[in-house]
């Protein structure tokens, strides 16, 4: 168990290079994951994430250490990604046209304990379908899905990060789930069981 966020932030404000590095190591994956979910391009997501981290470090002197650092950082990352998306006005990038030389989220999908190639292919296909369905959601829905189901944050924190009312966050998640169900059903992924 390393130092707390509060300790690292205090040291970073004092100018500790090592504290900055530890904060980066701790939050690089969640931040890039959130940004990637919004901008849907991994290399671009890293650039935007870098911009977000730099914004955060510049504003670190005015950060109140009693606040939750992760929420504050996610808020910056979320806003930076939305700004980047608006600046670039990127169209939905078909997954099949992604750069084959660059690692992608879909390049390795879980096979779990599945041994047969067919099972692994099945899981990979399911993973692709889920990732594609999420990518086709509206940006605010994608953000909410990432923060709730992948980062595992509570509703209140998501509302703070996205600067939305609590009810709106719940509505976004509800509609996102419905949209995902609809997309997966259209892609042929339906429940095999008819009842419980």
């Amino acid at each position: 168990m390393g130092p707390s966020d509060q300790q690292l932030v205090t040291e970073a404000i004092g100018g500790s290079q090592e504290a900055y590095r530890q904060l980066l190591e701790r939050y690089r994956q969640p931040v890039v994951s959130l940004v990637y979910r919004i901008v849907r391009d991994l290399s671009w997501a890293e650039d935007v994430s870098q911009e977000a981290f730099l914004k955060a470090f510049r504003a670190l002197a005015s950060f109140q250490v009693e606040r939750k650092f992760s929420s504050w950082l996610f808020k910056i990352a979320h806003n930076t990604a939305i700004d980047a998306l608006r600046r670039r006005r990127i169209e939905t990038v078909p997954l099949e046209t992604a750069d084959p030389d660059k690692p992608d989220l879909l390049d390795c999908l879980p096979g779990g304990d599945l041994d047969s190639p067919a099972s692994k292919l099945h899981s990979r296909t399911l993973g692709i379908a889920i990732a594609e369905a999420i990518a086709n959601l509206r940006p605010e829905y994608r953000s909410a899905v990432e923060l709730r189901f992948i980062q595992g944050l509570p509703y209140e924190e998501i509302a703070d990060i996205m600067q939305l009312p609590l009810g709106t966050v719940k509505t976004h998640l509800h509609r996102a789930r419905k949209a995902l169900v609809e997309q997966l059903s259209d892609a042929g992924w339906r429940p095999e069981t008819s009842g419980r």
Partner: peptide
């Protein structure tokens, strides 16, 4: 969704 692999951040980030 937790079963999906996490985003791989490039080395040197």
């Amino acid at each position: 969704l937790a079963a999906l692999p996490p985003v791989q951040v490039s080395e040197g980030f």
